[in-house]
Amino acid sequence: MNHILETKSLFHDFSGWEVLFDVNLEVREGERHAIIGPNGAGKTTLFNVITGMYKPSQGAVYFKGKDVTGLGPYALSRLGMGRSFQITSTFERQTVFQNIRMGVLSRKGIRFNMFRKVDGLEDVTRETEEILKRINLDKERDYPASILSYGKHRSLEVSMAMATDPDLVMLDEPTAGMSKDETKYAVELIRRLTEGKTMVIIEHDMDVVFSIADRITVLHLGTILASGPPEEIREDQRVKDAYLGEMEE
């Protein structure tokens, strides 16, 4: 089985405070991989190290078989890695259309063009509008992102990560703070958008995790406790002790 993403004994610390400890994550091509773990387990830090926000203090990250340790977010994005944020991070003052268009410009490699009006790039506009339809935000096309409802704003957040057309998308708690209905809708949207792609998702909601994931990795105190298919994780005694049991209390 091909590994699209692999970390090899990854360590990270914040001024001496170990947050990641010997993490060996393996994500297979095409799978939906969930990372779970109690608060403070290092999930977001792991994301930040993989996506190039931080350099790991030790270890290496392999993406599509290439050593990408220490590459910046822009470089990883160009190699085909997308990422959404736990705290919504859109361009709030710009319209929904402009938010998504940013991703379309990126996927087309239009980065420094200063000789054409961006509104005049018909294929960019068309592709952006197609995406808006697919994510059901075409009615909100010209609204500034900041006035969207919470659920829709979160959808935009995830869709922006997808708009660059990544092969691997890393979603950091896409359903954080959503109501039951919003969550249901978001899960459906994520499923639809990530069709045929590899996805790594951090998620707290166990219903979401068990309904969406092919494989689950449990992170605990900065290190991997277990990794495997959902049924296996559900039965794993160590996981139950460390995490699931705690949730049921």
Binding site: P73, Y74, M102, R111, N113, A161
Partner: peptide, 20 residues
């Protein structure tokens, strides 16, 4: 232009621009 819209993106959210 396209770079102009990226410029505005940098003002509002440089981190996201980098991630895109």
């Amino acid at each position: 232009t396209p770079i102009g819209s990226i410029m505005i993106g940098i003002r509002d959210n440089p981190q996201r621009v980098e991630y895109m």
